[in-house]
Write a protein that binds this DNA or RNA. Structure first.
Length: 634
RNA sequence: GCCAGAGUAGCUCAGUGGUAGAGCAACGCACUCGUAAUGCGUAGGCCGUGGGUUCAAAUCCCAUCUCUGGCUCCA
């Protein structure tokens, strides 16, 4: 007999060789029905996997992330089988589960069309109905290479060749169809219920643009139709939050053919922008930052000195002035360096925290542009901190705390990534290691979980990136903290130490919002356009019921304007209901309905966004209420 | 940049070779209204741009620009 320890700590005894499915069945019939795969001592296995010793066992269902992955991955196999049935000769690349679904990459003569997706989906449903068991078998490396070579599956052969020496090479078959796969899988295709193919896209083999472009089919699957419907509905909902749609509806900004990737900010968008910048200035002043502004166009020599000419040229725009080469700045740091160098600094001055809301231009690939999220010119809420080597950790932690405070004000959830030395980097491995470790230590001291992104650092230093989510769960890098030992070297920055000698300062580059443009996009989607009152372009709309109430409405508006409240009067000859509907669609936080009663009592009937009619109150009281809300940034 | 789709009125969209359409918005008139759309009327389009095929092109073909979803890249 063997002992199986379950996730909750309970233990059960079984005959040696009992399968994972057997254990599930023993626990309950419900679990047996829901079980998709198992996890034995932390290793994912099929339900059919026999247990031959004492183990820790987890039974995975669709409620577990790994269970969902197994389910989606199995669906990907069904997709591949369907595609090869319908389009013989199609070669298989890879087909993993991803967040909310799966994809499979194909190399086919046939160009898949959206209409094909329907046919493929129908074929998948057929395969599901056939209820083919997923069967695992192992092969030697030679056998596997031979097998896939014979089938003309050159990508699979390449994958096998790249597997480590000691790797177990396994395949899974469903009916007469076989795919190279580590598994595990659900027991049979019949376990898959609601399948939907969601998209079609090009994707380079192994993600390298030098390789052939394959055709990728995206899809998702759920064990219940209702779950699929719910998911599709969630996507619809997300479309309503899209900042590009809301940006147009709320008249915040536009992007026009005349300037792809160069956004135009409209008056209402500028209000949000200015509020964010004001907030930024106030907080940074509190935290000991000074503000500078450096030019947008600077001489080529500067960019050669900074290393941008060599390492960043493909992202830069250039111009000529009086027969000399100039570049439009893609980053603010070289400018800040020049400001630092205009005088001698004492160790007593450090750290110097030099902020700049700097407009940078970068040449992004046309296909990468995306609303305000990825543009070709944007304002970074930059700052460069020049400091003593001994101040590094403390300064980094200070910046981390500041970021956490900022994101907290907007209730934005974020995750952190640490990016290490890229291929195209300046400086020695030693200096990179030193800088990377400093970032790690600061993160660990703050108890922040982070993911490591190998080779994703800036060319001058490693960085901590703060990622925020958009409406459909894509994440965008916003804040970043980059530690830099190299620029101070390149620019020969110095400070005079206690000993009267010149020393080299260390530098941090950091942005909190990241780019104001991207941050506004994130906020728009986060709030679904219903900005908190302090940010709302229009905070109050006064709605006179009939023409004879317009004068009172205007007086009221003037009074609120004197308190710097952003207010509009809707004096159009329309019914009150109509005006309310429109103000509601514009997501204005407060509507003040005024008619005979209000004039008589010198009051306002308040309708609050999200709450509806909250009744009448004296004008003074409303003023206090909204002012308190604005000041608290609630 | 690459792959696939799309571009028609301010907005959302219909229109598959034969006189450019609808709803909303705008404008005018009437209504003067109490918490999510009052009625009637008017005006508005080089059908992204440039070529071509055709008696005839929003529609078919070619090129190009822009957008969307991915890939790559990144704040």
């Amino acid at each position: 007999m063997i002992t199986v320890t379950l996730k909750d700590g309970s233990q059960r005894s079984y005959q040696r060789g009992t399968t994972v499915a057997g254990v599930a069945k023993d626990i309950s019939a419900g679990l047996a029905r829901a079980a998709l795969a198992g996890k034995v001592n932390g290793k994912l296995v099929d339900l059919s996997c026999p247990i031959n010793e004492d183990v820790n066992l987890e039974i995975l269902t669709f409620n577990d992330e790994e269970g969902r992955e197994v389910y989606r991955h199995s669906t990907a196999h069904v997709l591949a089988q369907a595609v090869q049935r319908l389009f013989p000769g199609t070669k298989l690349a890879i087909g993993p589960a991803i967040k909310d679904g799966f994809y499979y990459d194909f190399d086919s003569e046939h160009k898949f069309t959206p209409e094909d997706l329907e046919k493929i989906e129908a074929e998948m449903n057929k395969i599901i109905k056939e209820d083919l068991p997923f069967t695992r078998f192992e092969l030697s490396r030679e056998e596997a290479i031979k097998k896939f070579k014979e089938q003309g599956e050159k990508y699979k052969v390449e994958l096998i060749k790249d597997l480590p020496e000691d790797a177990v090479i396994s395949c899974y078959s469903q009916g007469d169809w076989v795919d190279l796969c580590a598994g595990p899988h659900v027991p049979s295709t019949g376990r898959l219920k609601s399948v939907k193919l969601t998209g079609l896209a090009g994707a380079y083999w192994r993600g390298d643009e030098k390789n052939k472009m394959l055709q990728r089919i995206y899809g998702t699957s759920f064990p219940k139709k209702s779950m699929l419907d719910e998911y599709l509905q969630r996507l619809e909902e997300a479309k309503r939050r899209d900042h590009r749609k809301l940006g147009k509806e709320l008249d915040l900004f536009s992007i026009q053919e005349e300037g792809p990737g160069f956004p135009f900010f409209h008056p209402k968008g500028m209000i949000i922008r200015n509020e964010l910048e004001n907030f930024w200035r106030v907080e940074h002043k509190k935290h000991g930052y000074q503000e500078v502004r450096t030019p947008i166009i600077l001489n080529r020599a500067l960019w050669e000195q900074s290393g941008h000419w060599e390492h960043y040229q493909e992202n830069m725009y250039f111009t000529r002035i009086d027969d000399a080469d100039y570049a439009i700045k893609p980053m603010n740091c070289p400018g800040s360096m020049l400001v630092y160098k205009t005088k001698i600094h004492s160790y007593r001055e450090l750290p110097i925290r030099m902020g700049e809301l700097g407009l940078v231009h970068r040449h992004e690939l046309s296909g990468a542009l995306h609303g305000l999220m990825r543009v070709r010119c944007f304002t970074q809420d930059d700052a460069h901190i020049f400091m003593l080597p001994s101040q590094v950790k403390q300064e980094i932690m200070g910046v981390i705390d500041l970021f956490d405070y900022f994101y907290g004000v907007f209730n934005l959830p974020y995750h952190v990534e640490l990016s290490t030395k890229p291929e195209k980097a300046m400086g020695s491995d030693e200096i990179w290691e030193l800088a990377t470790n400093a970032l790690k230590e600061a993160l660990e001291e703050r108890g922040i979980e982070y993911k490591i992104n190998e080779g994703d650092g800036a060319f001058y230093g490693p960085k901590i990136d703060f990622h925020l989510e958009d409406s459909i769960g894509r994440t965008w890098q916003c804040g970043t903290i980059q530690l830099d030992f190299l620029m101070p070297e390149k620019f020969d920055l110095t400070y005079v130490g206690e000993d009267g000698q010149k020393h080299r300062p260390v530098m941090i580059h950091r942005v909190v919002f990241g780019s104001i443009e991207r941050f506004i996009a994130i906020l728009t989607e986060h709030y679904a356009g219903a900005f908190p009152t302090w940010l709302a372009p229009v905070q109050v709309r006064v709605i006179p019921i009939t023409d004879r109430h317009i004068e009172y409405a205007r007086q009221l508006a003037e009074r609120l304007e004197n308190k710097n409240i952003r207010v509009e009067v809707d004096a159009r000859n329309e019914k009150m209901n109509y005006k309310i509907r429109e103000a509601q669609n514009q997501k204005i936080p407060y509507m003040l309905v005024v008619g005979d009663k209000e004039i008589e009592q010198n009051s306002v009937a308040v309708r609050q966004r999200g709450k509806g009619d909250i009744g009448a109150m004296p004008v003074d009281q409303f003023e206090e209420k909204i002012m308190a809300e604005i000041i608290s940034k609630a």
